[in-house]
Design a protein around this nucleic acid. Structure first.
Lengths: 267, 267
DNA sequence: CAGTGGTCTAGACCACTGG
DNA sequence: CAGTGGTCTAGACCACTGC
């Protein structure tokens, strides 16, 4: 009773030729079953059927639901876990990953103290400088896949470690999904900003890309970081994406690197 | 005929309690079969039984050799492939990864042109400034797990893109494994330096860690890069490791980031 | 103890490569 | 065509968690 792949699923199995579009799709595009299952799980994740922090159904349950063997859903879950979308815990279940209640405070922050680790350093003090609604400039619009002039939220904040201002960040968010975000809500919330985005706006950041340069601060930036204006700084431009590679945040950070460094692992 | 894990292998199955040591090892340390297979494959890799670029035996052959099922060696190979130590090619075989003949020129270099990609930019021009044998300073010794005063090789070079000096690198190598390396050999070799290390010295770099800061150049550095001395630069300190996390190279690079940026993906 | 994820096996068939 | 890696299944048992 072996397979005859790509079948037995609800309509619209992703990646298969089953689509009704008459485009000259030049890809026979064989898509293994477990990839289709992965797509279906992904749909349930973004639809909110399973929320961040919650457990998803057991492998056996999912196997029954999708009419495949346990091994097949297992391989699908394996890939999603490797992408940090799911979290497996032996004996307990499989959980939707979340930026809250993770043992690392900031999952995407690669700045580390030169001595000790992030634990010993203690939590960062955060100061919201401001948060306002405005129209997207050309480059902001391009980064967020919006049109120039669309409504965006801009926020600026300073992170300090051990009382020392170390990071100055400007960030831009698309106005529609983040309607109602204010400086006050940002200030009151304790925990990672991306956790707030999950719980308050249902936006889950899944991955990000960063472009790093060395720069000198302008006068305003030097003042906020309380440094001489000839201090070289790391410029870190980040675009963070939700599901389906949709950009949801542009962030421009300036990092002081006299007592910290940006850490990266190369495989 | 099911398993009774951790058995049937040559002596010294890693991670199992079988060791003769009488230490109060407080870890029962259950080690799944596929992890033990992974360890054995790793041994064959570092012993040179299979060389970079070559194919390793087929999954069936390895399964027979290790007396386990194909699925078990498959899982071992999967992990090694995920770590970029092996490369699977459907229909052809599984190959030992190599820094030569890879479609990316420099596997560990994250500096990208702001426009276009590494292909369009063309290959970098490399200039060896010098290469000399000397005694390890305290910090170099610590990075390379040597003792202060041990013999090390130091090299300095400049990489230029489109005729523009962009990277200035100093690198230190442990003297013993790299005996006989000269500026001339570095200059004559065409291709990635890590490929030369593989073919000429049998040293394969497997992973690396980088610490990144923003700095200003000193007078000598500014001259070599042909830039004003108030130009902020990316300082990239890399430690590259062979098998078993043994450090084999310390590299300190200065990157000009006016037309390039350091690119990083966050998962 | 039941339920979860994790390991292992054996066997079948598919997709891709090259002679 | 034979040989390789890739997918899928069914079933057994193990390790971990929590009641």
């Amino acid at each position: 009773m072996n397979q005859t792949p790509s079948f037995a699923l609800d309509p619209a199995a992703p990646g298969t030729e089953g689509g009704a579009s008459a485009q000259p799709t030049q890809t026979p595009a064989f898509s293994p079953l477990y990839q289709q299952i992965k797509g279906l799980i992904l749909q349930s994740l973004q639809s909110g059927e399973w929320k961040p922090g919650e457990a998803i159904p057991s492998e056996m349950d999912l196997a029954a639901r999708f009419r495949v063997s346990q091994g097949t859903v297992r391989k699908a879950i394996d890939e999603l876990a490797a992408e940090n979308l799911l979290l497996r815990r032996q004996g307990k279940g499989t959980f939707v990953a979340t930026h809250a209640e993770q043992h690392v405070q900031y999952r995407f922050l690669r700045l580390m103290p030169d001595q000790g680790d992030n634990q010993s350093e203690g939590p960062a003090e955060r100061t919201i400088i401001d948060c306002k609604r405005l129209r997207a400039s050309a480059d902001v619009a391009r980064a967020l896949a919006l049109r120039t002039g669309d409504s965006v939220l801009q926020a600026r904040r300073v992170l300090s470690f051990a009382g020392r201002p170390t990071i100055l960040e400007d960030l831009w968010l698309p106005g529609t999904p983040f309607k109602g975000l204010t400086a006050e809500r940002l200030s009151l919330y304790h925990g990672p900003m991306y956790a707030l985005f999950e719980t308050e706006f249902g936006v889950r950041m899944v991955r990000a890309e960063e472009k790093i340069r060395a720069v000198l601060p302008d006068a305003a930036q030097a003042t906020l970081l309380k440094i001489p204006k000839n201090t070289p700084l790391l410029s870190v431009e980040r675009i963070a994406y939700t599901y389906n590679d949709v950009p949801m945040e542009l962030r421009r950070g300036l990092y002081l690197t006299d007592t910290h460094h940006y850490h990266n692992e190369l495989g």
